[in-house]
Design a binder for these strands. Sequence first.
DNA 1: CTTGAACCTCTAGTCACTAGAGATCGTAGA
DNA 2: TCTACGATCTCTAGTGACTAGAGGTTCAAG
Lengths: 138, 138
Amino acid sequence: MLSIGELSRRTAVKVPTIRYYEQVGLMPAPPRTEGKQRRYGPAEVSRLNFIRHARELGFEVEAIRELLALNENPDQSCAEADRIARRHMIEVERRIEQLTALRTELQRMINECSHGRVGECRVIQALADHDQCAHECH
Amino acid sequence: MLSIGELSRRTAVKVPTIRYYEQVGLMPAPPRTEGKQRRYGPAEVSRLNFIRHARELGFEVEAIRELLALNENPDQSCAEADRIARRHMIEVERRIEQLTALRTELQRMINECSHGRVGECRVIQALADHDQCAHECH
DNA sequence: CTTGAACCTCTAGTCACTAGAGATCGTAGA
DNA sequence: TCTACGATCTCTAGTGACTAGAGGTTCAAG
């Protein structure tokens, strides 16, 4: 059984954040020792790792709640699982598209940077001039 | 001279957000009319567009402050602007990779669903087990 | 000169944490 | 077994980047 500190080390999620996740229902209330300290098993490590990654990917807590629910009863209702999975799939694809466009633009900015003075810096110009291109770009 | 509402329309930045930017020092305090209403010139339109675009690209306010400062003394080297952009791009690429993995997993779930049997749900594993790689990868 | 949309300031709320205070617990070493 | 001290506990408050609302004032069209 892991203390909250060990769980934190294994998942790279800070201790107060773990308690916060418990408070908002993303993590289950774990069993406690005599002295009220939390003790976790290996399932919680996976669950918390999942939450961390999902957060890094920009999913809201509410969306993560759904994904977790999906994971918990996979053969409960296929139709429901399918619906949630599809909805998130669309969201994920939308996000990949946006990020890919963003990467292209950042790449272009960096490539065109002449490594000279700020006066000619494409990174800054690209940001300032963007509304000219905005209509064609997006 | 533009009112705050007109500035808002021209930059697609909401009025309270413009006031917020003034409060945190991203936008300068503009001159006022007799009756204390803000009036802006064309320079503010550019500046605000710059801010908006940078925010859309995911730069933090602090990073934008740096970029604006760089822009203000254009004789300086643009290495710093380049560094900020590069740092940001690495993060964007990391996100794309993770989202792609998640998409694959969601796709697999949807496929299994459509064949009438919900297999084991591996949504959590798709993201949770990535930390094995995390140490070597990053 | 009136009227009503737009403006003003100020406070408080949102989300997802993060930090700190002050008290208690658990375990390694004497 | 006792003690020291790092880890844990709860609770409140602060953060960033806005967003919403109350209640009052200003500007400009009719």
